[in-house]
Design a binder for these strands. Structure first.
Length: 371
DNA sequence: GATCCCGGTTCACCCTCTCA
DNA sequence: TGAGAGGGTGAACCGGGATC
């Protein structure tokens, strides 16, 4: 009746009120009249904000701030080579003067062998110092572009799936159980290595935690993800579909304390063990396979297994296809295996073949304690 | 006006090295 | 094995121009 009235077919129904007919006092039939979370009042919100000064809320980490301040001091010192302190202060008052000076300083940095990132940070700092710097700073960014064209970025090579499997197998054979398991979790979950190294037991949501034993899914919660300050959520999670790995994680981590780190040592120790495993497999340093290659390797493996690009974006927790291209473009460069000598290829192949046996052993033998 | 694309801009993570 | 410093890289948002 309401629809025909609205459509004009039955003018006599135009005034029909479905809400009244449903004995509902508002237009949201079947819903709460004011849906959504309970609203806080001014007093309650003000109490929660007690002591917080918006002007003092830091938008960058203290470390970045220190780095940029130090770079700025270097720029000022460079100025002082040609003028006295009073003149330098005069030059640094307005963005219109700072910008061309920074351009010259950028060229100087390039000549003396400084890093491009230091110049980028310096420009960013100048923009924070002078709000109108953007009006004059185009030349500085042009210097950055030219610098990049001379020295293009080199992306980290992805970790081939076979090398990941072999590395995990070597770790298990040496008794580095958590290293091996976390390497596989990071690879399958397309995680940044730092994310898995920082994770604690409560970030790993096992089937037994959800009372869904026997399922193949488990989750890793990522607190403070990389882009936390720029959208993407303060907390993210990844889903891993692997029944064997889920069972192994149950045995290795189920009995750990909720605040216990999944990897009980530091990142440096992870890195040293990584180096030892790569050396044992005969993988040369020149191939630049580092723990940072795990995420790219996971992405490439998912792509190769036929996972839809949108699904990979979701699993990687990135928002732009452009970003994913960084990883997948490396497909062509993923000739790490072919670059290996025959002995190393044999080691990788053998290790990858052994992995299922190690995983089966960990799955069947019950709880595993220790690092 | 809406949408897409791309380059500009920004900032935290990762790697390497040194020292304890 | 851990801590810290310094440099390099990855990946996000933003805005403007192009296209429909």
């Amino acid at each position: 009746m309401a629809l025909t009235g609205a459509a004009g077919d039955r003018p006599e129904f135009r005034t029909f009120d479905p809400s009244s007919c449903a004995r509902c006092g508002h237009a949201r039939i079947g819903e709460a009249s004011h849906p959504g979370p309970a609203k806080r009042g001014f007093v309650e919100r003000a109490a929660l904000r007690e002591g917080v000064e918006l002007r003092e809320v830091a938008l960058v980490s203290r470390r970045t701030e220190t780095l940029e301040e130090r770079l700025w001091e270097g720029f000022v010192e460079w100025l002082l080579e040609d003028c006295d302190k009073a003149q330098a202060e005069e030059l640094l008052i307005s963005a219109s003067m700072v910008a061309p000076l920074l351009e010259l300083y950028g060229e100087n940095l390039f000549k003396i062998g400084a890093s491009l990132s230091s110049f980028r940070h310096l420009i960013a700092f100048a923009q924070k110092k002078h709000h109108d710097f953007r009006l004059y700073g185009r030349g500085c960014w042009t210097i950055v572009s030219r610098w990049e064209s001379v020295e293009p970025l080199v992306h980290r090579p992805p970790l081939p799936e076979a090398v990941c499997a072999a590395a995990a197998a070597v770790a298990f054979s040496w008794g580095w159980v958590r290293f091996g398991v976390l390497l596989l979790v990071a690879f399958k979950g397309i995680l940044r290595i730092g994310e898995i190294l920082k994770a604690v037991r409560q970030d790993l949501v096992l089937p037994s935690d959800l009372l869904t034993e026997g399922t193949e899914r488990f989750y890793v919660r990522v607190s403070q993800p990389k882009a936390g300050k720029r959208g993407g959520g303060k907390q993210q999670h990844v889903t891993i579909h692997d029944s064997v790995l889920a069972s192994v994680c149950e045995n290795v981590f189920r009995h750990a304390r909720m605040d216990e780190k999944l990897y009980p040592f530091s990142g440096q120790t992870f890195r040293r063990r990584w180096n030892e495993i790569m050396a044992a497999l005969g993988i040369p340093k020149e191939l630049s396979l580092t723990p940072a290659s795990v995420r790219g390797g996971g992405a490439v493996a998912a792509y190769r297994s036929g996972t839809a690009v949108q699904d990979i974006l979701w699993r990687m927790r990135i928002q732009h296809l452009h970003t994913l291209q960084h990883y997948l473009q490396e497909l062509a460069a993923e000739n790490v295996i072919s670059a290996l000598k025959s002995k190393a290829r044999f080691s990788v192949k053998a290790g990858a073949l052994l992995l299922p046996h190690y995983l089966e052993s960990l799955r069947c033998r019950g709880p595993v304690y220790g690092p």
